[in-house]
């Protein structure tokens, strides 16, 4: 099911949270909304769910209109038939695992084969045998799975994630990323995933939408966002960036080399200021002669204070602010 937003705006009082957003979440794909806190990504998700009302604009689920200021349509939340996984799980503390998962079916009086369908969802998240427990008797990862089972039990076409992994520790997060992806793929769901963690967005998504201050900065595959950022902010926010000219010319760490292979490479003098061992390689922090700090990688330990030359091939330099680009070249 495609989700479409047309010209959607939202403000709280005088503060503009979202400014005429036009967005398309393609059917069956995993789309992440990525941005720093306060960029409006959670508000956007809540607008899709119907938990907040836009000031202006249209929202469509496939051909069905959920919200339209022009046509005066506003489908209430409980009629939108979507699954959602909340930030702190939002499991009902007084209901058992079974009843938490069954809630969506009971609420819509869709109780045919209830037990079997709830069981199926619980089995999909591998929580068999814990049906009678209450949420507080479960570990963080298990609670997360219940939240997920609750969302898939109603067989939604669209599932929304509001920073679902932020309450878990790092180890568990990795594991849950894989599980979420697998389930979303297996059930053929359209997923919208809100996160401020660029690594999470990069590793999970088919599409990423980078947002800042209520605006969509860039929309594309994780690869294109990383290798062809269209904006200095995106370059900074996604991946590590080394600035040649502040906010105008940038190169990614893996393209900074200590030896030159091509005649046309640009070169800089630098001093090693920090070395951090990462197992498979060393991350080297460099002070460049003109005051910038860069990051690069190397396969052996370097001495702090060592003077080096670094080389960058021109095709790997990203330019921003196109007016000035002409002048420099």
């Amino acid at each position: 099911m495609d989700v479409l937003m047309q010209d959607v705006s939202k403000s709280y009082g005088t503060q503009v949270v979202l400014e005429s957003m036009n967005m398309h979440f393609p059917s069956g794909q995993f789309t992440s909304l990525l941005g720093p806190s306060g960029c409006g990504k959670t508000t956007l998700l809540r607008l899709i769910a119907g938990l907040e009302t836009p000031d202006y604009g249209d929202i469509y689920f496939a051909e069905h209109c959920m919200f339209s200021t022009k046509r005066k349509i506003n489908r209430p939340v409980h009629q939108r038939k979507l699954g959602m996984v909340f930030q702190e799980f939002a499991l009902w503390p007084h209901l058992t695992v079974f009843e938490n998962v069954a809630f969506g079916l009971r609420a819509t009086k869709d109780t045919k084969n209830l037990a079997a369908r709830v069981e199926e969802a619980i089995k999909a998240v591998r929580l068999e045998g814990l049906e009678k427990r209450h949420p507080h008797q479960l570990s963080g990862g298990q609670q997360q799975r219940v939240a997920f089972a609750r969302a898939i039990a109603i067989k939604p076409k669209l599932i929304l994630f509001d920073e679902p992994l932020s309450a878990l520790d790092a180890m568990l997060r990795e594991e849950m990323r894989r599980e979420i992806l697998e389930l979303v793929r297996n059930f053929g769901l359209t997923a919208v995933y809100v996160t401020h963690d660029q690594e999470e967005a990069m590793s999970m998504s088919d599409n990423i939408m980078v947002m800042q201050q209520g605006k969509l900065l860039q929309h594309g595959s994780p690869e294109s966002i990383y290798s062809k950022p269209e904006d200095a902010f995106v370059a900074n926010f996604v991946g590590k960036s080394n600035w040649i000219v502040h906010d105008m010319q940038m190169v990614r760490p893996e393209h900074v080399h200590f030896t030159s292979n091509h005649a046309g490479d640009r070169s800089w003098k630098a001093v090693v200021s920090n070395v951090s061992y990462q197992g498979e390689r060393y991350e080297i922090t460099l002070h460049i002669a003109d005051g910038m700090t860069w990051t690069t990688y190397y396969n052996r330990r370097m001495q702090i204070g060592e003077n080096v030359n670094v080389f960058v091939s021109p095709q790997h330099i990203q330019f921003f602010n196109h007016d000035k680009e002409e002048v420099l070249l």
């Binding site: 702190e88 809630f103 609420a107």
Partner: peptide, 26 residues
């Protein structure tokens, strides 16, 4: 937490159903 009633709404609970099954027991 607001998210508890939000979740109930998302999963198809009408305001009255949400009150009866989530707010009241709590």
């Amino acid at each position: 937490n607001v998210s508890l009633t939000n979740a109930a709404n998302v999963f198809g609970g009408t305001p009255w159903y949400t009150f009866r099954r989530v707010v009241l027991p709590l």
